[in-house]
Design a protein around this nucleic acid. Structure first.
Lengths: 224, 224, 224, 224
DNA sequence: GATGAATGAGGCTTCATTCAT
DNA sequence: AATGAATGAAGCCTCATTCAT
């Protein structure tokens, strides 16, 4: 048996649930909710099945708490970041996009959490609700706030898309899903993709130059 | 129960696999792969467990063939549609987007297939491969073709985003995921959302008017 | 499809049951009673499952009739052979042994039938009964008859073993079992083994009287 | 039902596998490998299905370990016995035969193990290999050793049969098979049959030289 | 607190048997 | 006669959960 650095009992005890949830994340990622055996979670956490039941009531509880625990790690600081934004609305929007895209697309935890929600949302509706209320809605609100302010300031045009802030998130979602589905086949460079998205978006949101007639006409056709 | 019109044996035999796969779709949607009992699939299809095994080797096979069968229903005609496109590159792009968004976001089959791929992709990698090769790649190719032609014709600018055609798809994906996750909470109007996306995209892809100085400067900043 | 020599319908029909039983023999040999699927028997016989049920009531019946049918092929002519024996009792005994050993040990059918009886005797007691009555008992009787006559004629001594004619059969059984169990590992030469057994037996049955020259000479002949 | 004395947990755990294997022996004897339900084994062992799978991976494993476990009970002490043999080669051979025949023919475990090997040898070839290597070959070697020594000492003649030591075992096999097949119909007295076999064998192996008085006297002793 | 032996419900899969064609 | 689609009972095996130690 390897010596393994011994921690004081009290400390180990306090960390047990977290260790279990971390192990659970890996196992649920590997096999999905139903196909994961609590025994494997226990083994990975270095405990036995019984111990899991000391801390969590059921397998469902383990899953729920694992998702909660994993989410917090990468999404709890949105508010702080948003309130620290500086500069023009354009640059604030850009900075927020870079921040959010990074969170959504770059982190394995985020991607797999998305997978959990999609795969098990039917079985765990409260999980989906929670994520909507705690992460999605606030994020949309932040974007909405900046965009509306930008429109008011004349930096953005009141494009129909501004009614659907979700649209700003969509490239991030695509990145995330792409990594989940085709990551091993055709990787997308997150930074480059993000820049390209921002470029497209900013151009799309740019106010219409009243002088530019040709462009305006073309647009009118699109809106019909 | 109505007396049910009896069909000739041969005819029923030809329809059985399809009936089973349709039933399987519903049940797998309801509970996911692992939690679905083949017995329930059988019951929904109006046969018994044994019959399923007469047509399919295992539960995994049923799932695979169900996904295949479901995919074909809504994606086999992309090529035909694409080659029937007429008009300017701008209007071709718009028409293709409307077509594709409709397929991806409007159909329950498509949405749930996406869920299947995300949820069970690890267990069924060939399914993901197949979808990439047969649906995703060809779709991306169609978009790429139109966009490049549009650039050559001066209708679109060579935006960095044109290197990532996936970006054009991202609003559709968002629509699809949104319906899967938050559909019951906050519905998105597909038509309006699609129009808004097109508006944003077209504006984003519009060629830079050399006269429009203000716009150009702003853009340069974005591209840095 | 290969042309396959066509037989007149009537003839084919008459042969069907036999073809099925032959196929059954091969399949039951391969997997044992329980693990053999009637479907495989049908496939080997070139018919479908339903056809088997046209000729036989149940799987058990197929097995029983197969054993019966197989036994007849190699054991029905004992009586004829026994009554055709000529010469001294010693040479009759030797000839009968050679005949019986050949039947028991040389034929695959015989060996596998023995395996069937041992493996499935509990489930098919009538099969065992039948074999005892029709093959074992008559065989023992033939041996007993010759041995008793030989004793009466002074060719054999009244060894205690003559009360257990089974003992004469034991080397044949060993040959058979050996082939079933260790045949692939260490083969036994049936002819040589048979000769050695006969030599040992004859010597063991030889009368003790040192004066009996004739007998002794005859024995030498056996040893060649 | 008696209140059943409760044993400490640790002690029960150590005994469980053995209890299960003993129960398995009885059930497999009753119905054969394929027709035995693990649930019945469990019931006989006083546990539930799940417990069996806690100790053994599959039904096949249960069978294999059961055969192993059963074999050891009656065959592990051949070496000890053989090396304790005393006296003339003739008497050593006789003693070994009595010992071996007793083991093979008298014990139900031995008989049924033979049945298992014959019936399931195809499905469990390693079991057959193991028995050959651990029991059959060593036994043949012991016999061969004594016989060759006896020949060298002039107690036995170099009969052709001495090249096939298996022949010495054949009456024991017959006894065993007889019990398996016809035991309920016509029982054979093992002791008497063994004595008769020994008498026949010794006579068959006796040196031919009429002058050898000592040997002849010894033989007479055997016949008593 | 932690262990791990034991439980037992539940699901996949097999296959003998039936029967409409 | 023959087919082969359909049935459904039955058994192997898994694993969440419990609980005595």
């Amino acid at each position: 048996m390897p010596p393994e650095i011994k921690k004081p009992r009290a400390r180990r005890k306090a960390e047990r649930p977290t260790e279990i949830l971390d192990a659970a994340f890996e196992e649920f990622v590997k096999s999905g909710y139903a196909a994961t055996r609590l025994e494997d979670v226990a083994a990975r956490a270095g405990v036995t099945k019984g111990t899991i039941y000391f801390y969590f009531e059921t397998k469902e509880r383990v899953f729920e708490e694992m998702v909660r625990h994993t989410s917090l790690r990468f999404f709890s600081d949105l508010g702080n970041f948003a309130s620290s934004l500086q500069g023009s609305h354009t640059s604030r929007l850009r900075d927020l996009i870079v921040f959010v895209y990074g969170r959504i697309a770059d982190s394995r935890e985020s991607r797999e959490t998305l997978r959990f929600l999609i795969a098990e949302g039917t079985r765990f509706p409260e999980l989906v609700e929670r994520h909507y209320d705690e992460f999605v809605q606030p994020m949309l609100d932040e974007f909405q706030r900046i965009i509306q302010a930008g429109i008011a300031a004349g930096e953005f045009r009141a494009a129909p898309a501004t009614a659907y802030t979700e649209i700003v998130l969509s490239p991030a979602l695509l990145l995330s899903l792409w990594a989940l589905l085709f990551g091993s086949r055709k990787e997308i460079d997150v930074a480059v993709f993000t820049d390209a998205s921002i470029d497209l978006l900013m151009r799309g949101l740019a106010p219409t130059d009243p002088i530019n007639r040709a462009d305006h006409n073309q647009l009118a056709e699109t809106e019909s």
